[in-house]
Lab assay of single mutants.
Amino acid sequence: TEVDLHLGDITIKLKDVSEEIVKRAKELFKNGWSAEFVKKWIEEAVK
């Protein structure tokens, strides 16, 4: 499945990412993480 994760003005296309990771990524962004950091976190999380 593909998900578009909207973080501010940046959209990250996610492939084969669990709902849990998407939820967590949104929380991290809301908590002040930059979109770049969230993207890196996701990449690490799906390895």
Rank of each mutant, 00 (worst) to 15 (best):
T1G: 13
T1A: 12
T1Q: 14
T1Y: 12
T1V: 13
E2H: 11
E2T: 13
E2L: 11
V3M: 12
V3S: 08
V3N: 08
V3G: 08
D4A: 14
D4V: 15
D4R: 05
D4N: 13
D4W: 11
L5W: 05
L5E: 03
L5H: 02
L5T: 02
L5F: 06
H6D: 11
H6I: 15
H6V: 15
L7N: 02
L7H: 02
L7A: 02
L7P: 01
L7E: 02
L7C: 05
L7F: 08
G8E: 05
G8L: 04
G8A: 04
G8K: 04
G8T: 03
G8N: 04
D9V: 07
D9E: 10
D9W: 04
D9P: 10
D9Y: 06
D9Q: 07
I10Y: 10
I10N: 05
I10R: 03
I10H: 09
I10M: 13
I10F: 13
I10D: 06
I10L: 11
I10P: 02
I10W: 06
I10C: 13
T11N: 05
T11F: 08
T11V: 15
T11R: 03
I12W: 02
I12G: 02
I12V: 08
I12A: 02
I12L: 13
I12M: 06
I12K: 01
K13T: 14
K13R: 10
K13G: 08
K13Q: 08
K13A: 13
K13D: 09
K13I: 12
K13V: 13
K13L: 14
K13H: 15
L14Y: 05
L14I: 11
L14N: 02
L14H: 03
L14A: 03
K15D: 08
K15M: 11
K15R: 12
K15F: 14
K15W: 14
K15P: 06
K15L: 12
D16F: 07
D16K: 04
D16H: 08
D16N: 12
D16S: 04
D16A: 05
D16W: 09
D16T: 03
D16E: 09
V17E: 01
V17C: 04
V17P: 04
V17T: 04
V17M: 04
V17A: 06
V17S: 02
V17I: 09
S18P: 14
S18V: 05
S18H: 08
S18R: 06
S18Q: 06
E19G: 08
E19L: 11
E19P: 13
E19R: 08
E19M: 11
E19N: 10
E19V: 10
E20H: 10
E20N: 09
I21V: 08
I21L: 11
I21T: 05
I21F: 06
I21M: 07
I21Q: 03
I21C: 03
I21G: 00
I21D: 02
V22A: 05
V22L: 12
V22Y: 06
V22D: 00
V22S: 04
V22Q: 07
V22I: 15
V22P: 01
V22C: 01
V22H: 04
V22G: 03
K23W: 10
K23M: 12
K23S: 11
K23V: 12
K23N: 14
K23Q: 13
K23G: 07
R24P: 00
R24Y: 11
R24M: 14
R24D: 05
R24F: 12
R24H: 14
R24T: 13
R24L: 11
A25W: 02
A25M: 03
A25Y: 01
A25P: 00
A25G: 04
A25N: 00
K26C: 07
K26Y: 15
K26D: 05
K26T: 10
K26G: 07
K26M: 15
E27D: 10
E27V: 06
E27G: 03
E27T: 06
E27W: 11
E27C: 09
E27S: 05
E27F: 07
L28W: 04
L28S: 01
L28F: 10
L28D: 00
L28K: 03
L28Q: 02
F29I: 07
F29D: 01
F29E: 01
F29R: 01
F29P: 00
F29Y: 14
F29A: 03
F29T: 02
F29C: 03
F29K: 01
F29W: 10
K30R: 13
K30S: 13
K30D: 15
K30W: 08
N31Q: 13
N31M: 13
N31V: 07
N31S: 12
N31A: 12
G32I: 01
G32F: 03
G32Q: 02
W33R: 08
W33F: 14
W33K: 14
W33H: 15
S34N: 11
S34C: 07
S34T: 12
S34P: 11
S34Q: 06
S34D: 10
S34I: 06
S34A: 09
A35H: 06
A35D: 03
A35Q: 04
A35T: 07
A35L: 09
A35M: 06
E36L: 08
E36M: 09
E36T: 08
E36V: 08
E36I: 07
E36C: 07
E36Y: 05
F37K: 14
F37R: 15
F37T: 13
F37H: 15
V38D: 00
V38K: 00
V38P: 00
V38C: 07
K39G: 07
K39E: 09
K39R: 15
K39N: 05
K39C: 09
K39M: 15
K39A: 12
K39H: 08
K40W: 14
K40F: 09
K40R: 10
K40C: 13
K40A: 15
K40S: 12
W41G: 00
W41Q: 00
W41M: 03
W41F: 10
W41R: 00
I42C: 04
I42N: 00
I42Q: 00
I42L: 11
I42E: 00
I42V: 09
I42M: 04
E43N: 07
E43A: 08
E43D: 09
E43G: 05
E43F: 08
E43M: 13
E43Y: 08
E43Q: 09
E43C: 07
E44K: 05
E44A: 07
E44W: 10
E44H: 10
E44G: 05
E44F: 07
E44D: 12
E44L: 07
E44Y: 07
A45R: 06
A45G: 03
A45C: 06
A45N: 10
V46F: 05
V46C: 12
V46R: 06
V46Q: 09
V46P: 02
K47M: 15
K47C: 06
K47H: 12
K47W: 04
K47A: 15
